[in-house]
C-alpha cells in the first residue's frame, strides 16, 4: 500500500477512535471536554485555512467571515425551529454559496491586496449583521434555544460533532492535496503565471479551493453557536477567528496535512497553560507567541523536525 493510503487510513482510524472514545473517556470532565472541543473547532478552521493559505499560497484572512456567517445562519434557522442537523448543512451551504462569487472576485488580487480584501469580508458581514437587527438581533446577539437543556448532554454532543467535523476536514485536506486539484494548486502556489502557461485554469481551481475551504469553516461556526448558546457580531466575526487558525498552521507546518493537527494542539495547550495565568494580557500573549514563532521557528514544528531528520 502507498504511504498516502496508509496515512489516510491512519487518520480515519485514529480520528474514528477519537470520535467514539473521547466522549466516553472525558464524560464527567467538563473542563477537558471544553478543551478538546476548542481544539477540534480550531483544527477545523486551521485545516480549512490550509487549503487556501497553505496549498494555494493565498494569504486569506476570510476564515472568520465564514465562521461568523455559519454561526448566524445556524442560529437563525434553529430559532425558527429547524432541526440542528439541517441547520449545520444550511450553514455549510451558505458558506459555499457566499464563497463562490467572493472567491471568484478577490482571488484575482494577489499578495497584500488579496489579504486585505479577504479581511474586509468579515468587517462587511459584521456591520451588515449588526445593522439587520430584525433578523439577527443586531448588537444584542441571539440566544440558541438548544442550549436550554442539560449542559452536560450539550457539552458531550458538541464534543462529538466538532471532533467528527475535524476528522472530516483533515481528510478533506488530504483528499485535495493528493488529487488533480491539489496538483493544480501546487502549481499555482509555486508560479501562477507558469501554471497558466501549462494549461492550469488557475482562476477556476483557486475558486474551488476557496469554496471547499469556506464550507467547513461555516459549519464550525454553526457548531460553535449551538455549543456556546449565545452569539453576537463582535464575538463570531472577531478577527481572531481568522488569525488563530493561521498561527496554528504556522506552528504546525504550512501546506502539510498533519501540520494543522499538531499546530492546533500546541496552540490550545499554550493558550491554556500560559494565558490562563495572565488573562488581562491574553491578546498580548498571543502577540508575543507570534513574534517569537516567526523569529525562531518560521517553518513550523513538523517541517523543522523532518528537515532535521533528513539532515542527520
Amino acid at each position: 500500500m502507498t504511504s498516502r493510503g496508509r496515512l489516510a487510513i491512519a487518520i480515519a482510524v485514529i480520528g474514528g477512535l477519537a470520535c467514539a472514545g473521547l466522549p466516553l473517556i472525558l464524560a464527567g470532565e467538563p473542563y477537558l471536554m471544553r478543551l478538546v472541543t476548542m481544539f477540534s473547532l480550531l483544527l477545523v478552521l486551521a485545516a480549512s485555512w490550509n487549503i487556501v493559505g497553505g496549498f494555494t499560497g493565498y494569504p486569506s484572512f476570510a476564515t472568520g467571515a465564514f465562521f461568523g456567517l455559519g454561526a448566524y445562519v445556524a442560529a437563525i434557522l434553529q430559532a425558527k425551529g429547524v432541526d440542528w442537523r439541517l441547520a449545520l448543512v444550511a450553514a455549510g451551504l451558505a458558506g459555499g454559496i457566499l464563497a463562490a462569487p467572493v472567491g471568484y472576485g478577490v482571488l484575482r488580487l494577489r499578495g497584500h491586496y488579496f489579504a486585505v480584501a479577504s479581511l474586509m469580508l468579515g468587517t462587511i458581514l459584521k456591520e451588515l449583521t449588526t445593522g439587520w437587527s430584525d433578523l439577527t438581533g443586531g448588537g444584542m446577539g441571539l440566544t440558541i434555544a438548544g442550549a436550554g437543556g442539560d449542559p452536560e448532554v450539550l457539552a458531550s454532543f458538541a464534543l462529538r460533532v466538532s471532533l467528527a467535523l475535524a476528522v472530516l476536514t483533515v481528510l478533506l485536506g488530504a483528499a485535495i492535496k493528493w488529487s488533480r486539484l491539489g496538483f493544480g494548486l501546487d502549481c499555482i502556489r509555486m508560479n501562477e503565471t507558469a501554471a497558466a502557461g501549462i494549461g492550469v485554469d488557475a482562476q477556476r481551481l483557486k475558486t474551488y479551493a476557496f469554496i471547499l475551504s469556506s464550507i467547513p469553516s461555516a459549519v464550525a461556526g454553526a457548531v460553535y453557536a449551538g455549543w456556546i448558546g449565545y452569539i453576537d457580531p463582535t464575538d463570531v466575526y472577531d478577527v481572531m477567528w481568522s488569525v488563530k487558525p493561521i498561527v496554528a498552521v504556522l506552528l504546525g507546518g504550512v501546506g502539510t496535512i498533519l501540520g494543522p493537527v499538531v499546530g492546533a494542539a500546541i496552540f490550545v495547550a499554550l493558550e491554556e497553560i500560559v494565558w490562563r495565568n495572565v488573562l488581562s494580557f491574553s491578546a498580548g500573549g498571543l502577540g508575543v507567541l507570534i513574534v517569537l514563532l516567526l523569529l525562531v521557528l518560521p517553518a513550523g514544528v513538523l517541517p523543522s523536525l523532518v528537515s532535521r531528520k533528513t539532515r542527520s
Partner: peptide, 15 residues
C-alpha cells in the same frame, strides 16, 4: 512571504 510579514506585524499590534 506576505503571509509571514502580515502575521508578524499583527503580533506586534496585539502586543
Amino acid at each position: 512571504p506576505v503571509l509571514i510579514t502580515l502575521v508578524f506585524t499583527f503580533g506586534m499590534d496585539l502586543i
